[in-house]
């Protein structure tokens, strides 16, 4: 246990360090960003360097939930359930942050907090699936049953995210876009130049490290919780 928590500590320190570097790069290292016409774009574009890594990480967390769910159903080992629930909680947090950072950026860039755009809606679906997953876990008490049913839902929910991406794409292409051109918001042409790419890469590393550190802490927490539960219910049974 002690070696484990030292590893977690190192991971957390590393994540904090890279995060600081990433924030520094966004605010001080990045040159002003120019649009296609060479004009300087509003500084709000810098939130993109938070936004996109968080988004990718939230999808990554969901892949972890899916893989752990599949392995749980195959092996019935408690560790897979611990991985799934840890990743789901962090993923819910990250996908919420995606919606928040995206909305702030959208308000500044387009003047709307929310439009029913492809990527926005897919992120919303991801967040809702995470919430439903956590709700399901909360309403089941028996640990084995909770792990099994949550794994089934984890698999179903994971499938629905790419499918909603497809169906929303269809939906949007059937209607004209409300905004001309750059509605996707990936920043398209702005992403040339090494400074930008480097900043983005450092931010990616920072957020993936943050996810790994949070995941390690959470897994350790859940393991301790399991140990406590075992002790407590063990005593309870002796008391009977």
């Amino acid at each position: 246990m002690a070696a484990n928590s030292r590893k977690t500590g190192v991971l957390a320190a590393l994540a904090a360090g890279v995060m600081l570097l990433a924030v520094y790069m966004i605010f001080f290292y990045l040159p002003p960003i120019r649009g296609e016409g060479g004009e300087v774009l509003s500084g709000s574009f810098r939130i993109f360097f938070f936004h996109m890594p968080i988004a990718i990480t939230s999808y990554l967390a969901f892949v972890v939930v899916f893989v752990s769910s599949v392995f749980y159903l195959r092996e019935k080992a408690l560790k897979w359930d611990i991985y799934a629930r840890s990743a789901a909680e962090i993923g819910a947090l990250f996908s919420f942050l995606v919606l928040v950072t995206g909305s702030i950026w959208a308000k500044d860039a387009w003047g709307w907090y929310w439009i029913w755009d492809l990527r926005l809606t897919t992120s919303l679906v991801l967040f809702l699936v995470y919430l439903a997953y956590l709700m399901l876990r909360k309403s089941l008490e028996e640990p084995e049953k909770r792990a099994r049913l949550a794994a089934v839902f984890g698999i179903m929910g994971f499938l629905s995210v790419p499918l909603s991406f497809l169906s929303i794409r269809l939906w949007r292409s059937a209607h004209p876009l409300m905004f001309g051109g750059n509605t996707g918001g990936s920043g398209g042409s702005g992403l040339e130049g090494t400074a930008l790419q480097l900043t983005l890469a450092v931010n990616f590393i920072a957020y993936i490290l943050l996810f790994a550190a949070l995941f390690a802490v959470k897994v350790e927490n859940e393991r301790m919780q399991e140990a406590v539960d075992e002790k407590r219910y063990g005593e309870f049974e002796e008391g009977l």
Partner: peptide, 17 residues
């Protein structure tokens, strides 16, 4: 209570088309 909460997000890709 739980069924609609679980069902609607998973159902979204069929409701839209």
């Amino acid at each position: 209570l739980l069924l609609p909460v679980l069902l609607l997000p998973v159902l979204l890709p069929v409701l839209i088309p």
